[in-house]
Nucleic acid binder design. Structure first.
Lengths: 253, 253
DNA sequence: GTGTTAGCATTGGTCCTACCAATTTAGTGG
DNA sequence: CCACTAAATTGGTAGGACCAATGCTAACAC
């Protein structure tokens, strides 16, 4: 399924729940046996995941008691700013496009092979919202950033991805624009980016990456507009309920 | 002695060996089975210790191969990466140009006034290498980044500036290309950037910023080449001193 | 002689079961 | 109602087993 370690996948899932606020600071996580059962892995794997999370400062494991979520301040990587999904995507549109353009001039054949396998993995992922797909997507973009041959570029895009993964609002926004059709479209875009890199076409790589993020940005804006419309509709319904129910005859939702 | 978890004790011992240089970056640690035997613990415990070390960035575990000590730069306590001045300048060339292009569409009049005064300050600075000039330069670029209206963009350029200021090698490289003539040229470039922003000309702002960094990058490359030539000259002189002084008549220089 | 390939040994990844130790909870006796 | 004890829960460690990926090596083909 994924070439990621299994315990890493479990750690990521737990981390996500912590970042999303499902488990709040001070909360006690379910027991190791319970988590193992829930996630369909062995207790050893859950233990390994919890040890990794503890090393990263997300939780504190107390023998005989349980694992507790720590305060965000004590996390090892807590200095990322609060940005909206639209801002972040715009920044990635600008920066990752340039990174791709640079990568097209420096990328090696082995790196191209790696990207090809990632494109395949992503195209085969059934459930789009799953961890494997997200991780493959992340690795795809970070591999391109690395192929630029510029550590500063790589570092920059890594920190943008940290915002993408760790900020709950950004994560939600991505989930909201996820659909079967979108997944196919995204697959085509990844393919286009790969093709441009394979041809060492710097300009085409920039354009392909720009289109990738432009489409994403457009989807997000449409989605938020649709959500706003829906919110208005709900509010209107409530108002109708409140202000029109005094006329029994007029009720018609 | 050990109110710690056993795996943490093992992790500490391994970490100390890494920090003491017993295991150097790139080295492969003994296998899990071997370490377990050496330290008198189970393989599970060794695995847990290695997972904790990996989460802290000390080692990288490769399935089927072994656990390898990572470069000190990639440890989690090292917040900013180790980059060369050329890499950083290239990254800034790419990213700050896009930030300027974005800023041209969003910048306010008051922000423009602020930039104008900064341009004046920098043009009047006598000693170019002084702190005031550096700070004004920094504020000039960060103000533009802020004018983009995108927090992610602003954050990114701020972190690039941290590398610019905090990394000694980068700092030195900038000092090396500093001269009276360069300062005047730099002033003209800042003026050009400001003019483009004032005209809300996105494309011109991008180009002006690109030219600014391209010139800087060129200067750095020339400078490092000149330095390399100088180093060769010094080395040649030393060789001359060492190998030719046996002939007293030939000494010249 | 060279390059390729097939096979084998090593190594990490995961799981299971069992038992120990610390903690928490339930219960009990005062 | 409180203090103390016993049982249940929970994390900690161990050993063994099997799988998959990696790396080495020797045999093979050219």
């Amino acid at each position: 399924m994924t070439d990621l370690r299994l315990y890493q996948s479990v750690a990521d899932r737990l981390q996500r729940k912590i970042l999303d606020g499902v488990y709040q600071p001070g909360d006690r996580l379910p027991g190791e046996r319970e988590l193992a059962d829930e996630m369909g892995v062995s207790r050893v794997t859950v233990r390994e995941a919890e040890i990794a999370l503890q090393a990263m400062g997300y939780i504190l494991v107390k023998p005989g008691s349980g694992a507790y979520v720590t305060e965000p301040a004590s996390r090892h990587d807590a200095d990322i700013p609060t940005v909206s999904a639209l801002e972040l995507t715009q920044a990635r549109l600008l920066f990752e496009s340039e990174a791709a353009a640079l990568a097209a001039r420096n990328i090696s054949d082995t790196t191209l092979d790696r990207l090809a396998s990632l494109v395949t993995v992503m195209s085969q992922s059934h459930a789009d919202g799953d961890d494997a797909s997200l991780m493959a997507d992340r690795e795809f973009h970070l591999t391109i950033a690395g192929a630029s041959g510029n550590v500063a570029v790589q570092y920059t895009i890594e920190s943008l991805w940290r915002m993408r993964v760790e900020l709950a609002n950004v994560h939600d926004a991505h989930d909201a624009v996820c659909s079967e059709a979108m997944a196919r479209e995204r697959g085509r875009e990844h393919q286009a980016i790969y093709d441009a890199l394979k041809n060492r076409d710097s300009s085409a790589a920039r354009t392909a990456m720009q289109q990738h993020f432009t489409r994403l940005l457009t989807s997000m804006i449409d989605s938020s507009e649709a959500k706003a419309v829906e919110a208005l509709r709900v509010q209107a319904a409530a108002s109708r309920q409140r202000y029109l129910t005094v006329f029994p005859k007029s009720e018609s939702v």
